[in-house]
Design a protein around this nucleic acid. Structure first.
Lengths: 243, 243
DNA sequence: AGCCGGCTTGCGGGTTCCCGCAGGACGCGA
DNA sequence: TCGCGTCCTGCGGGAACCCGCAAGCCGGCT
């Protein structure tokens, strides 16, 4: 067994290395790198690698790296090791995990014992290990009233990018009115409707984005990513006449 | 001399402690805590303390803690030790530093040598030490074309919160048209105007917030903070009739 | 079949936003 | 005093947004 560590903070990397050494004595080699891009190329060189991946990295994030790794080798076992349990990150991960793959999500604030257990659980026992706090965030969003469906989430991202209703309709292949319906649903679920006593205080569109950020449904990484998608789309899409 | 360390990550805290021990042998006591709120109370107990402060903490951030510390004792020397050089953070800090106070801003990615130099510079020599990258972000915003004035920045925050033009006018004591003028200025400076070929693609209001986040002018901490301010304002403000 | 709930679409309207135009207030240097 | 630049403000209109109402499609349930 060989392990690839992708983590930009040297301190955390050292701590990780030690945890792996203790939890996985059968591990014959530990390779380390500090950036998502490096992670991808190193993973290519180690077809049997188990990966421990930080999520917040520059310029390529852990999500980016994990996506390409999984695209090339869907059975790869990846443990995400992150500072935050924001829904934005959790959604980002669960969006790219291939069906049937074993993976994990452990917070950096977890104890060494928990980290070591997760390492064995994923890389040896081939099971999924999700920290309680993370699962909490997952549930909170999926079960409670504020459960944005996947399509609603996409529209939320689109308005966060600053697109018009019209543009969203074009992009997602919907009528203008459908987009607006989805918006209504989002406003309801985020609890952004006229709150009886503050009429005209909020611009619902902007407000929705605001509370989404405050509730950690959205973050800069999400946006950056969506921005790149959008750029790709506009490039491919013939812009209508506009003289 | 006594030093107070406020940093939530245990690894980083240990690293910091070691750096202080090396750089400041004359330091007789090092107190550590892991949260902004604790930091404030511990600082109260140590009237002569020098403070090293992480910026990203839960639930009270380093900015929050520094503000109350400086309010009670403006001469306190504080070294901010942060992961990021985002303009949002830099603005946040420079907004609360009292005139004449010595402070520092060093990135966590800096070498141990740089950190130790900063420690001596601030706490012993009583000078300001700002990392090059940070100063870069500062300059980039202040000099280049994309230089939002302080008032424009406030309006930017307001639309990021999802307020209507009307609400902003009320809050800031301006006419509706003036608010809109400021918005025009923001749109120009952020380069969000109709880009010749994509008419009707963007909702300028939302787009401005989007690029502000992407350019790191705004982040979740900024918003959270502004949100609290807003709540205080609406509470104090008699809402107009709306039956 | 028949009914129901969910998703989509069109229509129409009231409101808000975006912004060019133009007039007024203030400070500053000639 | 005049001219100039900068900021605030009102007016007006075109566009975009917010949203109730109603009709159609479709899959599931009895």
């Amino acid at each position: 067994m060989r392990v690839l560590l992708v983590e930009d903070d040297p301190l955390h990397r050292a701590w990780l290395r030690e945890a792996v050494r203790q939890a996985l004595p059968e591990c014959r080699e530990i390779v380390e790198c500090a950036d998502g891009g490096d992670g991808e190329t190193r993973a290519r060189e180690m077809p049997d690698a188990c990966v421990v991946m930080d999520l917040q990295m520059q310029p390529r994030t852990g999500i980016d790296a994990a996506r390409t790794i999984w695209r090339e080798r869907p059975a790869t076992r990846i443990l995400f090791w992150s500072n935050y349990s924001d829904e934005a990150y959790v959604r980002g991960v669960s969006r790219i995990v291939p069906p049937g793959a074993a993976y994990g999500y452990v917070l950096k604030s977890a104890s060494g014992e928990r980290l070591r257990l997760a390492l064995r659980g994923i890389f040896v026992e081939n099971q999924c290990v999700i920290d309680g706090e993370v699962r909490g965030a997952q549930q909170r969003s999926a079960v409670q009233s504020g459960a944005l469906s996947e399509t609603e989430y996409e529209v939320l991202i689109d308005i966060a990018l600053g697109l018009t209703d019209q543009a969203i309709a074009l992009r997602r292949g919907l009528s203008l009115r459908s987009v607006q319906n989805r918006l209504q649903a989002i406003y309801d679920k985020l609890g952004v409707r006229a709150v009886e006593g503050q009429t005209g205080l909020y611009n619902l569109r902007g407000r929705a984005v605001s509370v989404a950020v405050l509730r950690r449904l959205l973050n800069r990484a999400t946006l950056e990513h969506a921005e790149a998608d959008l750029a790709r789309w506009t490039a491919r899409h013939p812009r209508p006449r506009d003289p």
